[in-house]
Design a protein around this nucleic acid. Structure first.
Lengths: 167, 167
DNA sequence: CTTGCTGCAAAAGTTTTGCACACGT
DNA sequence: ACGTGTGCAAAACTTTTGCAGCAAG
């Protein structure tokens, strides 16, 4: 949709500066590993988990690294540590798909998002949840709470799965 | 609270028969341990986790067990195994509060329920979500999904916490 | 240079599983 | 009796942490 940006990196460059600013503000450093993780995160269209990033980075040298000689192997520890920062920076958010494992997704400009999960294929589709705002406020008001945020996961059967069930 | 056995148990007895029927249907057995776990589950007003049940059953002999000589110590393994059956039987449901640990709540007659979580005190309030049904269907329709269920967690600041912040 | 960062490996926390024995039905 | 269930302890998994060396600013 949006063209321009700084270069053809599209999404990556702006988010990258956001992260850099965030890190600087906290006296943290923008390291090679953090850059790689951010890149891997931005390459994920949908929901991902820590181990997806780990797998993605094993061996595969991302093109944007130009003359990539860096080993491109980031330890799990660093991934977990960086995910925390990305959460704090508001670049990603946690999506509660199931307990036992953390799931994350890019937070598109902080727009509230829900996720539609196919119970058969496990395909996940994100959708905006602004239309729930009034209801959220209503629910909070009924209990005297002040709304902060919400997480919505809708389970259903995707069209592909329905089709497969038929044939 | 709880009186004797079959009669005035209020909540427990009906759920108990539901569970027994469920087990029988699957050729599974209604054991002392499963009865104890069900009792512990029904005693929880709100959201609980596996370890809550374990803690609750250590030593405390539930009154309803009459002449309780049974050790009333149920292993964690059995708790986890039984929770699976209770889920399948529809007696409890998983509540996605955070990843890394499973949270459960009684499912009141299968009525869809959301949870309001105070981000400061961690108090959790359940609320019915029927009023979201139309919206859920709408969202599913937009993506060609067939709705199955949903999970909603709303985060907010409880009245107590707000009050504490003031004073 | 100073301070924070990384990788490794060990630890921690939750949930699962193999096995020998015990118990509902 | 038969087939399940249970407890124990070990295993499996995800995530966290201590530490020695490394690197960003």
């Amino acid at each position: 949709m949006v063209r321009t940006a700084d270069a053809e990196d599209g999404l990556i460059t702006p988010v990258c500066s956001i992260f850099r600013r965030f890190l600087k503000r906290q006296n943290l450093r923008f390291t090679t590993e953090r850059a790689l993780i951010l890149e891997a995160v931005m390459s994920k269209a949908d929901v991902f988990e820590a181990d997806d990033l780990y797998a993605e980075m094993r061996g595969a040298v991302p093109e944007s690294r130009g003359a990539g000689e860096k080993p491109t192997t980031v330890s799990r520890a660093t991934i977990y540590r960086t995910l925390k920062h990305l959460l704090e920076a508001g670049i990603i958010r946690e999506v509660l798909i199931d307990s036992g494992k953390a799931h994350y997704a890019q937070s598109f400009g902080g727009r509230p998002t829900g996720h539609l999960v196919c119970v058969e294929t496990e395909r996940i589709v994100a959708f905006p949840t602004e239309r729930l705002d009034a209801l959220m406020r209503e629910i909070c008001a009924e209990h005297g709470f002040e709304p902060v945020s919400h997480r919505l996961v809708v389970y259903g059967v995707s069209p592909e799965a329905s089709a497969a069930d038929q044939g």
